[in-house]
């Protein structure tokens, strides 16, 4: 699906990246723990998160995350938004909770960037 479809499905506001809504996105990862995002998320995925600081943008940049979806109606502050603009990372904001956000996207065909973590990297 396109990022535009993600916006429609989630009734989301586009905070950054109005010009990138035609980008194709197929997979997603959801977490508030950036170390887990770094451990498991894949390039080109969208990141669903409730964390709104600079580290979310940096983490997304490091991993070549396609776009960030802030859940639970979260908004980033101006500095964080400017960093996302600078690094050209789209940000959407939806009022749906993480569970609903993931479920609605999954129902429309989006899948996780990994299904399960393998034993070697599973959390204790």
């Amino acid at each position: 699906m396109k990022l535009r479809d993600v916006k429609e499905i989630l009734d989301a506001d586009v905070i950054v990246g109005d010009d990138k809504l035609d980008m194709e996105v197929k997979t997603a990862f959801g977490a508030d723990l950036m170390s887990d995002v770094l451990a498991f998320a894949k390039a080109g995925s969208i990141l669903l998160t409730g964390l709104t600081n600079d580290q979310v943008i940096r983490t997304a940049d490091i991993l070549d995350i396609a776009a960030i979806v802030l859940v639970r109606g979260k908004r980033a502050n101006t500095d964080t938004i400017n960093l996302a603009k600078e690094l050209k990372i789209p940000i959407l904001s939806t009022k749906y909770i993480l569970f609903e956000t993931a479920g609605r996207l999954y129902a429309k065909g989006m899948v996780g960037c990994v299904e399960k973590v393998d034993n070697a990297s599973a959390r204790n």
């Binding site: 508030d32 723990l33 950036m34 170390s35 887990d36 995002v37 770094l38 451990a39 964390l51 600081n53 580290q55 979310v56 983490t59």
Partner: peptide, 9 residues
Amino acid sequence: EMGFGAGMG
């Protein structure tokens, strides 16, 4: 608060 410190680094 930054999303780190969970013993994964």
